[in-house]
Amino acid sequence: MKHSPKQLPEVGVRPKRVLSPSEQKSLATTAAASAIINDETNKWESKTARLKALRLAKEAADEAELAAQPPKAAPKSKAKAKVSRATKAK
């Protein structure tokens, strides 16, 4: 007599375990905490990306403004020759 496939359990398949009320509460708390943490992380990353884009745009505008200005002539320095004490005494 052969067994029908419905009567034989599949290899490697375990029946689902029933969770106790404390385990269910723990899983619910963990899921809620994970959702809050993920939400805060997404807010933080989006704020960082927004601020980085603003900073890069400002830096590009500043560079364009500097490039548009005519170069300033370097001031001529009136440096005096330094005289050391040894040469002064002679």
Rank of each mutant, 00 (worst) to 15 (best):
M1Q: 04
K2Q: 10
K2H: 04
S4Q: 06
P5Y: 08
P5H: 07
Q7P: 00
Q7K: 08
Q7V: 11
V11A: 12
V11D: 02
V11H: 09
V13Q: 05
V13S: 12
R14S: 12
R14H: 12
R14D: 08
K16S: 07
K16I: 07
R17M: 09
V18L: 07
L19I: 03
L19C: 06
P21V: 11
E23K: 05
Q24E: 11
Q24N: 03
Q24C: 04
K25C: 04
L27A: 12
T29K: 13
T30E: 11
T30N: 07
A33E: 15
S34L: 14
A35W: 02
I37M: 07
N38H: 06
N38A: 13
D39F: 14
N42Q: 14
W44A: 15
E45A: 11
S46M: 03
K47H: 04
T48H: 09
A49W: 09
A49N: 14
K52Y: 07
A53N: 09
A53M: 09
R55F: 02
L56E: 08
A57Y: 00
E59S: 03
E59D: 12
E59Q: 15
A60G: 02
A60T: 14
E63A: 15
E65S: 05
E65F: 08
E65H: 11
E65L: 14
L66K: 15
L66D: 11
L66W: 11
L66S: 06
Q69G: 01
P70R: 09
P71S: 13
P71E: 07
K72H: 02
K72Q: 14
P75E: 08
K76Y: 04
S77Q: 03
A81D: 08
K82E: 02
V83E: 01
V83I: 11
V83D: 00
S84W: 01
R85I: 10
R85P: 04
A86T: 06
T87W: 00
K88Q: 01
K90I: 00
K90H: 01
K90L: 07
